[in-house]
Write a protein that binds this DNA or RNA. Structure first.
Length: 236
DNA sequence: CGAGTTTGACCAGCGC
DNA sequence: GCGCTGGTCAAACTCG
């Protein structure tokens, strides 16, 4: 496991490709002025991809890099979008934020600060949703999770990230000819979701958006020697 | 027969 | 308030 992890790591850094069971996926940086990713997505670094999909590489160092970068580069409230291209050894390709989805940023901050998420009512206030409104929201809407997205050049829609996913919906979104698919992690008590769609301008590109953090190890990494408590700090 | 997928309906948020 | 849109549900269906 350890030696394999190191090999994967260098592949990401030098070739911008993700090795998976289905072959190599190219990681394509978002141009800074591109409208993608969708609102609320903190566009991803090569490192954070492995944080989302630990089976693709070692999670720990990568996840930590993503969190610190996101907070350090956090745009001001009036700056809905900022871009950071290339810097720091290709760490953060681009970064965007919307007012609507500020909850995602707050949670990233909380993670860094070591706070508990959703532990008390104070969190409801800084998430911008009143307690009253929260009560009115249906259960499926009230929990907001951090989201991360990246795009890959691939023939297959669903990138094998080591987790088991169950499709729960598909939708044709406006101005796109390709449907968006919705997946949920099949693990009990794990609420991680992902959306998969093809880029309208370039159907070879697959946009994958992850929402939430896994509370378990990847299904194909059961032999991993890391303890659950160690992993839980870094899995997304 | 169980697990996973498909797909139309429903619902909430948002902009006008 | 209304219509549009994205996200989710859940029954029907498919597959191994």
């Amino acid at each position: 496991m350890m030696s394999t992890t190191n090999v994967n790591h260098s592949l990401f850094e030098e070739q911008d490709q993700i090795p998976t069971q289905m072959g190599l996926f190219n990681i394509i940086p978002f141009p800074p002025n591109q409208t993608y990713p969708p609102l609320g997505c903190q566009t991803v670094t090569l490192k954070s991809i492995s944080a989302i999909a630990p089976s693709l590489s070692s999670a720990a160092n990568f996840s930590e890099t993503l969190l610190s970068t996101a907070v350090n580069q956090r745009p001001r409230e009036e700056d809905l979008t900022s871009s950071l291209v290339g810097g720091g050894g290709g760490q953060l390709l681009s970064l965007s934020r919307s007012r609507v989805n500020s909850w995602a940023w707050e949670e990233v901050s909380d993670c860094l600060m070591g706070k508990r998420i959703g532990g008390d009512d104070n969190h409801h206030h800084h998430l911008g949703v009143s307690a009253m409104k929260m009560k009115k929201m249906k259960a499926r809407r009230k929990v907001r999770e951090p989201r991360f997205c990246f795009k890959t050049m691939s023939d297959v829609d669903v990138l094998d990230d080591g987790y088991k996913w169950r499709k729960y919906g598909q939708k044709v979104v406006k101005n796109t000819q390709h449907p968006r698919s919705y997946y949920r992690c099949t693990q009990d008590n794990c609420r991680v979701k992902k959306r998969v769609e093809r880029l309208a301008e370039d159907p070879r590109m697959v946009i994958t958006t992850y929402e939430g953090r896994h509370v378990h190890s990847p299904s194909n990494e059961l032999e991993d020697s890391q303890t659950p408590s160690e992993l839980s700090n870094f899995l997304w």
